[in-house]
């Protein structure tokens, strides 16, 4: 595992990464199949459907059947990559993911796009703040929240060769670059992007950039902050959580997801089971449904930004000092 942080910002849309990477994978491996549920235009996979019409299937608006049929295809050696919006990939087709997929030990990759605030003007009906909670609860299912285009590409390129159920959750749009192209990752291992001695921020996806911003602000307060990319939400890198958290004044998690059942819960479980005394602040969507809005409005409304992380840290430190 060797990652290199990006020097320049040239963010690429993640749906473009999805299409371009799958174009290569379909060329190399005749077993790769692409399925979508009437969101081909949205996922940007039109070119795939034109280039490989025999191995790209538009399932129509029938997510339960899409997950089930894809699992069926996998039992005969196909490697389906399945896309729909995160709430439909998980909430709507949960029992299919659980039984036709996990319980049966099928072999599919699910791209649940636009989780959390990324639903934007599609609003509350299309907002998934619980997809991590749901997918984490399925035994042996690997849950990945790619941090940026480089990592998403790496994940697609590597998991194609492994057997099992994989859930990827990320935006379709561009997110800030975190890594340089040559970076190499390891499923199940978190990446310490920045070391720090006072505070540890475990973040995923678009919240990594906010964590890095928060780190700079916290410097003004004389605080040294570690930032860790926990892109594999399950299996969680428990050893890293323990190692990094030990001796910190405060541990923070940051995710574009409900505070119930996501990264914050996963980290809390590790801290609770180990002799780590640092207070935990979960920067996440509170126990609320989504709503329509711009990205800035929703991030502000849900408290998903650097300011919320900084405030959480300072609040926790005041509390810890007073204790």
């Amino acid at each position: 595992m060797q990652f290199i942080l990006a020097e320049k910002q040239q963010p690429k849309e993640l749906r473009a990464v999805y299409q371009e990477t799958l174009m290569e994978l379909m060329k190399e491996n005749v077993n790769v199949v692409v399925c979508d549920a009437d969101l081909v235009n949205a996922s940007g996979t039109t070119k795939l459907f034109e280039t490989y019409p025999d191995r790209c299937i538009n399932m129509g608006i029938s997510e339960a059947n899409m997950i089930g049929a894809s699992c069926g295809m996998s039992l005969t050696g196909k490697i389906p990559f399945v896309h729909t919006f995160a709430p439909f990939a998980t909430r709507r087709a949960f029992d299919q993911l659980y039984l036709s997929g996990g319980y049966q030990q099928a072999n599919i990759r699910i791209f649940g796009s636009d989780p959390g605030f990324w639903a934007l003007h599609n609003g509350g009906t299309h907002t998934s703040v619980e997809d991590l909670a749901l997918t984490r609860a399925i035994p042996q299912l690997t849950v990945i929240a790619p941090a940026d285009a480089v990592q998403f590409k790496w994940v697609l390129n590597n998991t194609v060769n492994w057997y099992g159920m994989y859930y990827f959750r990320c935006a379709r749009k561009a997110v800030p670059d975190i890594y340089s192209d040559a970076s190499v990752f390891e499923i199940g291992r978190g990446n310490v992007l920045y070391e720090g001695s006072d505070i540890a921020i475990f973040a995923i996806g678009e919240m990594i950039a906010e964590a890095i911003k928060a780190r700079e602000i916290l410097k003004v307060y004389g605080l040294s902050t570690a930032v860790i990319d926990m892109f594999t939400v399950k299996p969680l890198d428990e050893d890293l959580v323990k190692t990094v958290s030990k001796g910190k004044k405060v541990v923070i998690t940051a995710e574009n997801h409900s505070k119930i059942g996501g990264l914050g819960s996963a980290v809390a479980e590790v801290l609770a089971e180990n002799p780590i005394k640092a207070p935990l602040i979960r920067v996440a969507i509170q126990d609320h449904f989504g709503e329509v809005g711009t990205q800035d409005y929703l991030k502000d409304k849900f408290g998903l930004n650097a300011e919320a992380i900084v405030n959480g840290a300072l609040r926790a430190l005041d509390i810890s000092v007073s204790m």
Partner: peptide, 16 residues
């Protein structure tokens, strides 16, 4: 769920 798995298997054989 079984019938969805079945159509997937049949489609897979067709594709191959």
């Amino acid at each position: 769920q079984g019938i969805s798995l079945a159509v997937g298997i049949a489609k897979s054989f067709r594709m191959s």
